[in-house]
Amino acid sequence: MLHTVNKSPFDTHDLHNCARFVDAGDVLLLLEDGVYAAQAGTVQSHLVADMISRCAVYALQADLAARGISDLIPGVALADYDKFVDLVEQHKVQAWL
């Protein structure tokens, strides 16, 4: 299953709430304001750092670039929209809106 999270972890608990439903083999994609969760060294970085041990974590490149985020938590992979489509091809989707 592909979980998408589009909110800042400083604003909502969506990433936190999503985490308990992530299963082995699942993938997390951070997009829109969700990519703030991928930034290293913040008080919310532990959320993504903890998830990386359980599932693949991607952050949408266009959204990182738009927000000027470059210092990513180690293990976060970059995804362009083509990769987003590949992930949807491989997994059913749950959007944590």
Binding site: V88, K92, A95, L97
Partner: peptide, 8 residues
């Protein structure tokens, strides 16, 4: 095969 939801 897939449903992809975009919202807020």
């Amino acid at each position: 095969d897939r449903l992809v939801t975009f919202g807020d």
